[in-house]
Structure formats: C-alpha cells, structure tokens
C-alpha cells in the first residue's frame, strides 16, 4: 500500500471510529451515570461511582418497575404484531390486486403520514371515549395498527416478491389467503424482521399518546414512569439513569437478536 493510501485508510478509520464513539457515548454516559449521585452527574463526572445499588433500589421503590415494564412490553409486542399483520396484508393487497379505486385510497394513506399527530389527538381521544376505551392499552395500540408508513414499506417489499411463486401456488389451487400465509410470509421473513425492529421501537418508545389516553398508575408504561421521575421537583439523575437503562434494554435486545435479518430486510425494501 502506498503511503498516501495508508494515510487515507487511517483517516477513514479515525473518522468512523470517532463517529462510532460519539454514537455510543450517551450509552456509556448512562451506564456511568447509574453509579453516580446526582451532584456528580450534573458536574460531568465520568468515572464509575459507588451509588449503583442505592440508585437501583430507589428506582425500584419509586417506580413500580415490574408493572410498568410489563405494561410497556404488552403494548409493544401486541401492537407490533397487530401492526405487522394488518399493514403487511394491506401492503400486499395494494401491490398484488391493483385497481384504480385502491390506488386512490393508497394515495390518501400516504397523505396521512404528513399530518402532525398533535392535531389528531383531541378527535382521537373523543373516539376512544365513545368506544369506552379510555385508560385501556387497546386504545394505545389501535391508532398505530394501520400505519401508512408500514403499509408503504410492505408494498415496496412486495415488488420484490417473485411472481412465479404466486403463479405456481395458484396453479396448485391455493387460495389467495393461503398464498399469502404459506408462501409470502415465510419468503419475506427478513422483511418482517426489519419491520418488527422499527415498529417495536416506535411502540416501545411511544410517549405522547399513551400519556393522554392512560389515566391510572396501574396502566402506565415505562416511558411515562421515567418522564415523571425526570420531571420531579428534585429529580435524582442517578435513579433516572437506572430507569433509562431498563427502558433501553428491550429495544437493544430486539435489535441485537434481529440484526442480521434486519439489514437483510432493509435490502428488500429499498430496491
């Protein structure tokens, strides 16, 4: 390798290394912060302290950690499954069974992505009230199930679904729903994995809508619990950091176990 190429190479590593470091730094900060007291954290102490057990104990005392964690998990998992089911079926339907009427509806669906959520909250809230769903987890999930973005994503991915597979299945006498369930879904596993990662993260991290629609302590999600800890009159940053980690672990976990399929699935969606 020539010296100038070597220098370029070193530059590339330095740049990527620095960017990767900046990307993970807040994670490190969170982990170091868990072991420190508030007073040290606000003064920027970046060495491990000895307050971890105290912070952890306080977190589990102040927030009903197992309950809020369970609530979040329930909402995120059921919400993700429902979203993937409804939106992938629709994305498939829009792509395979084209008609002018459905294309127009698809256009409207894409337009809904542009509407800021803040303005939909009041009417959505009224609807949930009429359905008797205020303060239920189902009310948190329902508005996200038919997501314009996920429908779009699956329609794009379906374009890469080989039509020979479908034709062969039709010749074999499979019904359309069977083709979808037995041929499409297994073939598109990595597309589902990628969508799962993104939808799960969105559902797990959702804040504004659960805040409005959930009313009692026993329904709260972990993000709501952390936000009330962080906005206490005198917040304990050490405790908040413990909560932050607990709230981040599931999304990290989902990402790591699905990482390979995730990148694979992205491939399909951007063709």
């Amino acid at each position: 390798m020539s010296p100038s190429r070597l220098a370029t190479r070193a530059g590339i590593y330095a740049f990527l290394g620095l960017f990767a470091f900046l990307s993970v730094f807040p994670f490190l900060w969170m982990i170091v912060g868990m072991t420190n007291r508030t007073g040290d954290i606000i003064l920027g102490r970046f060495t491990l302290g000895d307050a971890f057990l105290e912070n952890a104990r306080n977190f589990f005392e102040q927030a009903d950690a197992p309950l809020v964690f369970w609530n979040s998990a329930k909402i995120a998992i059921l919400g993700t499954i429902a979203t993937l089911a409804v939106s992938s079926i629709a994305g498939y339907g829009f792509e395979i069974f084209r008609s002018p009427a459905r294309e127009r509806i698809y256009g409207v669906l894409l337009l809904t992505i542009m509407i800021p959520f803040a303005v939909l909250m009041i009417p959505l809230f009224v609807i949930m009230g009429k359905l008797g769903l205020i303060n239920t987890h189902i009310a948190v999930i329902l508005p996200t199930v038919a997501s314009g973005f996920v429908v779009f994503y699956f329609r794009q991915a379906t374009k890469a679904f080989p039509s020979e597979l479908r034709d062969a299945a039709r010749v074999d006498g499979l019904k359309e729903w069977q083709i979808f369930l037995y041929i499409y879904v297994p073939t598109m596993r990595s597309t589902y994995a990628a969508a799962f990662v993104i939808v799960f993260m969105t559902a797990w991290n959702n804040y504004l809508w659960p805040l409005i629609v959930l009313q009692t302590n026993d329904k709260k999600t972990i993000t709501l619990a952390i936000s009330s800890l962080a906005s206490a009159y005198y917040p304990d940053y050490g405790v908040v950091m413990v909560g932050a980690l607990v709230a981040t672990l599931p999304t990290l976990f989902v990402f790591f176990i699905m990482q390979r399929q995730f990148v694979q699935g992205m491939l399909g969606s951007v063709k």
């Binding site: 920027g44 102490r45 962080a230």
Partner: peptide, 29 residues
C-alpha cells in the same frame, strides 16, 4: 462500526432527552 453507529435510534426519546439534557448542562460532561 455499523452496529455502533446505528445504535442511537434504539434509544427512546424520553431517555435520550434526559441524557442529552444531563450531558449538555453548563458544568456537564
């Protein structure tokens, strides 16, 4: 490197706001 650079988007908004707030304090890290 790819994993590390992707990592920020797994963090929830509430969490990352608290972290950024605490990192960018006047005497912060």
């Amino acid at each position: 490197l790819r994993t590390l650079i992707f990592l920020p988007c797994v963090m929830s908004l509430v969490v990352y706001s608290v972290l950024f707030k605490s990192m960018f304090l006047l005497d912060g890290i």
